[in-house]
Design a protein around this nucleic acid. Structure first.
Lengths: 131, 131
DNA sequence: ATCAATTGCGTTATGCTATAACGTGTGCGA
DNA sequence: TCGCACACGTTATAGCATAACGCAATTGAT
């Protein structure tokens, strides 16, 4: 899969997320894009589905919200497990990846004969500035 | 805090979760408890809030659902980070705790000067039977 | 060229998840 | 006995997500 050629709606949603300080809910995105012709939630959700599939966007389960992936590179390959710190104060989200955790989780799930498809790691708390 | 004396509603919700095979949404719990006089979502959510606070129930963020804590002991102390495997096939949820992951996450967040309040780890996939 | 399959899009309606806001009753310590 | 905290009940509303329909554009095999 080459770097994805996005459709118009996908591009609009991606841009909205990229230019946002923090995560946005689907409905917040919708509101931001009304001026660009968006009228219904499905227009957002359908674009998000694709962007998630392409690995360009992450869903924050504990917030029901979405963020642009912070990885600079192409999104042609899997980045393994993605983890987030989420500040309750300022809303800042920091994405990180850690090989050690990935290995350890892999060991633990293998022990259960569990076949992992998607791993969610979200750490809620306060960042340095908001502590 | 001694082991909690639960109210009537809290007991009903706790029992519903304990006797369930897998996780339940708040509205599923509501339906199960209609015969016991439950009429409105808030009755469930208020009970769940307390049970979560007491550590007797966990919320699965990626499912918007709740499970009884599988720990046998009293819930008087914190068990640290709780992680779950969630089978997409049969819905089975397995709770586990791992010191190594906890340590590693602690190290990583300390590096950001991030003060952790709650950690969510949920692994979606397929269990041995459903693979 | 044409047909079929796929994909994206727009719209309406609906369903699921969660909380706001108000008032009542009860127990308990100052 | 007053005040407070807390559980409870109810109605209404807010917030998140998808079902189901139809149309248009693209692609690719025949």
């Amino acid at each position: 899969m080459a770097t994805q050629q996005l459709t118009k709606n996908q591009t609009l949603v991606m841009d909205a997320l990229s230019h946002s300080e923090g995560p946005m809910s689907a409905y917040t995105i919708l509101d931001k894009l009304r001026d660009h012709g968006f009228r219904a939630p499905l227009q957002v959700y359908r674009a998000l589905d694709k962007l998630l599939e392409y690995g360009m966007v992450h869903r924050l389960e504990s917030l029901n919200a979405f963020v642009a992936c912070s990885c600079p590179h192409d999104h042609e390959h899997d980045h393994g497990v993605t983890a987030f710190t989420i500040c309750e104060g300022c809303g800042q989200v920091t994405e990180f990846h850690d090989e050690a955790i990935e290995q350890r989780l892999s060991t633990l799930t293998r022990g259960q004969n569990f076949k992992t498809e998607k791993t969610t790691i979200e750490i809620r708390g306060h960042c340095q500035s908001c502590a």
